[in-house]
Simulated assay, not measured.
Amino acid sequence: MGTGPVSSEAQRARIGVFYALAAFFMWGLAVPLHFKLVSAVPALQILAHRIVWASVFALGLILAGRQWRKLVEALTSGRRLLLLCLSAGLIAINWLIYIWAVNSGHLVQTSLGYFINPLLNVVLGVLFLRERLNPAQVAACVIAALGVLVLAISSGEMPWVALALASSFGFYGLVRKIVPVAPLIGFCVESLLLTPLALGYLAFVVANGQSVAFRGDLRLDALLVLTGLSTALPLIWFAAAAQRLKLSTIGLLQYLAPSGQLALGVLVYEEAFGWIDGLAFSLIWIALGVYTASALRSPSPARKPVEAG
């Protein structure tokens, strides 16, 4: 007696964990492997195909779910549309850098970028949303900054790929946090806003004989079409998980994605990873541990979840 609501909540949480694991598995392993399979295609062409096919897939989901009125509302709302234009530009930059980095042998840096991202979100919250940091969060940010500094000193330059990924996705999350629109609707609007540019670029490369796609390689063509699926599915699964799980649980599970990218880069593609890299990543992991422990001890008010790229 009286166990019904508890059982229902437990079932809801289990389903949420399943969705979260599916999303982070795709972001950490399936998506970078997918892009590696189309590495013969220039990054800008992959990005254009990703935008176009993601738009087609998202539109199909919206029509199937009879949410087209919400889509029209988002497209005709001036302030929301302006903010979604900004978020669309930021996510396009993030996608382009990510695709180029994966296919140029920088998976380790992409993982670093997404390890840094949660801590950068904390800083952006302080700077733009007037959120306050507790001492543990300040310590976490300082330790993470030391990790980045170690990499910069050891390599003689800043880890620009990691910082560009973290900052573009961090600002994307900041914009999406203040836009009152459902995840799927927002993603579809962003994709639709970028689609004319993507189609224009694809038409240009076709006219100039530079297009790699649809020239007889059916396997490559199918992989490019499927970039829409591999883009939209984890975002939808993540949104489904965020509706069912505590923010602290999502925060812990989200580190699976960059962990997968790091493992792929080092173990599968044999990217360089010396003791200096180990030291820098150790500092980042310590920072994340401090931050996560602080969040679990004194959970902050629920925040709107942000889709990952």
Rank of each mutant, 00 (worst) to 15 (best):
Leu197Arg: 00
Ala20Gln: 09
Ala92Glu: 08
Leu149Ile: 11
Ala222Tyr: 05
Ile185Cys: 00
Arg12Tyr: 06
Ala241Lys: 02
Ala92Cys: 15
Glu9Leu: 11
Ser282Ile: 01
Leu226Gln: 04
Met1Glu: 14
Glu271Trp: 06
Ala139Asn: 06
Tyr19Ile: 04
Leu61Lys: 02
Ser191Arg: 00
Arg244Glu: 12
Pro180Met: 02
Val41His: 03
Gln261Trp: 05
Phe171His: 01
Leu37His: 10
Leu174Thr: 00
Phe24Lys: 07
Arg297His: 01
Ala88Gly: 14
Val126Tyr: 04
Met1Ser: 15
Pro183His: 09
Ile97Ser: 09
Val52Arg: 00
Ala182Leu: 07
Val126Glu: 00
Pro301Thr: 11
Gly274Gln: 05
Leu37Asp: 07
Val102Leu: 14
Leu223Cys: 10
Leu197Glu: 09
Pro159Asn: 12
Gly170Lys: 02
Leu253Ser: 05
Asn121Thr: 08
Val6Asp: 03
Leu133Lys: 02
Ile62Glu: 03
Val148Asp: 05
Gly251Leu: 10
Gly147Met: 06
Gly4Ala: 15
Gly65Ser: 11
Ala287Cys: 03
Leu247Pro: 00
Ser104Val: 10
Asn208Cys: 07
Cys141Met: 07
Val150Pro: 04
Leu84Glu: 06
Gln254Glu: 06
Phe238Tyr: 13
Arg303His: 14
Arg219Lys: 01
Glu9Phe: 07
Met158Asp: 01
Gln261His: 05
Ala166Ser: 12
Pro5Thr: 10
Leu29Phe: 14
Val290Thr: 03
Arg12Pro: 00
Leu267His: 12
Leu220Met: 11
Leu235Thr: 11
Ala232Thr: 13
Met1Tyr: 02
Tyr172Ile: 01
Tyr98Lys: 04
Val266Ile: 15
Pro135Glu: 07
Leu124Val: 01
Ala30Asn: 03
Leu83Met: 04
Trp237Met: 05
Leu59Asn: 09
Pro196Ile: 01
Gly125Lys: 05
Tyr114Ile: 05
Phe18Ala: 15
Leu151Ala: 03
Ile91Thr: 12
